[in-house]
Amino acid sequence: MEINLVSESLKFMVLGMSVVGVFLVILVQVIKIQAKIIDKYFPEKAPEVPATSNNANEEAHHVAAIIAAVTEFRKK
């Protein structure tokens, strides 16, 4: 049987656009839901992340201060 390419491709278009649309709509909804869940239960540990770096910084400061003190002490 001769297939009518145009009607066939129109059917493909309906299928394709709806699958792409549905896929992305679901994706959008899932993203929104996960954003809510994550914000509620696992909020960005904003204070903690800088805290670690602060710790590192502080340590570095301490080390620098100790080194400075030691060198000052040795100079005397």
């Binding site: 278009m13 792409v20 709509v25 959008v28 993203i31």
Partner: peptide, 16 residues
């Protein structure tokens, strides 16, 4: 994201 879906009309439109 829906915009990324709409642009796929290019594929199926040109298929027709």
């Amino acid at each position: 994201a829906l915009l990324g879906g709409a642009a796929q009309f290019g594929i199926f439109g040109s298929l027709v």
